[in-house]
């Protein structure tokens, strides 16, 4: 597959990258390239200018600061997998990064690119919904913080402006008695999810669910928040019946399409089962089991 022609620039600073994006309305940011380059090879994307951000220094940090886990735009999936901090305190993020693509793709693919691409089949969007994360968008003279619920705008669409860079992802530091889990049904390694469910929650001292986030992968035009399921469990002492009911709400509220991975009915049922199991696993982890 031979891509169409394009111009290429590899700026070394954020301001230079932003100026390049402004200079050409058909410019595209190139990060890990693991979604964009396949599209370019098939000529499904034909940007006039590629602004390669890989040479910008100082964007590959993972640090805990001010109540957030802050992840720079050039952090790769493999960096998340290798981070002791992520493995120890962010089991939902750790589960998710391991389920993305394959080890070779993960050496290039970035978390920021996974969110900016906004493919409903990407795994991180649901996880960031469950965490109630934020992203930082940097524009020419201003940067703004976007709550994740305002970020996704449908199929492959986000609230980023064409001349904005997603520079940081912020995941709230977990409260005591927190747990999370990502469960994904995939047909084989490297496949996108037939369906995926992300759950993050914390328990109060009495064992009731204090806060809970549930995100769903690849069962709608974008990653979905299972809002009614969350509401059903918030404040409740979790038991099998309550979890089952919350899972049924997710089954009703998701909006999958029938395709080669399964029928609508199958996928809805899968969402129910995965939601149940992910909640149970998150609770086990919150209890330190």
């Amino acid at each position: 597959m031979i891509p169409a022609q394009f111009e290429y620039a590899a700026p070394v600073s954020i301001p230079d990258a932003l100026a390049l994006l402004r200079s050409n309305p058909d410019a595209k940011i190139l990060s890990g390239g693991q979604s964009l380059i396949p599209l370019i090879k098939f000529r499904l994307a034909q940007p006039a200018l590629l602004v390669d951000i890989n040479n910008i220094g100082g964007l590959d940090y993972i640090r805990a600061q001010d109540g957030w886990l802050k992840i720079g735009a050039l952090v790769r999936e493999a960096d998340l997998e290798d981070s002791a901090l992520v493995r120890r305190s962010y089991p939902l993020l750790y589960d998710t990064t391991l389920s993305v693509a394959d080890p070779l793709v993960r050496n290039r693919a970035t978390l920021a690119g996974n969110l900016a691409h906004a493919d409903p089949a990407n795994d991180h969007p649901a996880t960031m919904l469950a965490y109630r994360a934020e992203v930082v968008a940097t524009g020419v003279n201003i940067s703004r913080v976007i709550p994740i619920d305002d970020f996704f705008r449908g199929l492959f669409a986000t609230s980023l402006a064409p001349d904005e860079l997603l520079t940081e992802v912020r995941v709230p530091m977990p409260k005591p008695r927190s747990g999370g889990a990502y469960l994904k049904m995939e047909r084989k390694v490297g496949d996108f999810a037939t369906a995926g469910v992300a759950v993050q929650l914390n328990l109060d001292a009495a064992g009731k669910i204090e806060q809970i986030g549930i995100g769903l992968t690849n069962v709608g035009l974008q990653a979905l928040r299972a809002k009614r399921s969350e509401d059903a469990l918030r404040g409740a002492l979790p038991d099998a019946k309550g979890i089952e009911r919350a899972a049924r709400l997710a089954q009703e509220d998701c909006d999958p399409a029938s395709d080669l991975r399964g029928s609508v009915e199958y996928k809805r049922n899968l969402v129910r089962v995965l939601t149940m199991r992910a909640i149970e696993k998150a609770i086990e982890r919150a209890k330190g089991m």
């Binding site: 290429y8 190139l30 693991q34 380059i37 080890p103 070779l104 793709v105 290039r108």
Partner: peptide, 11 residues
């Protein structure tokens, strides 16, 4: 290890 079909030579 990376897939050299999913990078440009200029990179």
């Amino acid at each position: 290890p990376v897939k050299s079909c999913t990078m440009f030579a200029v990179q």
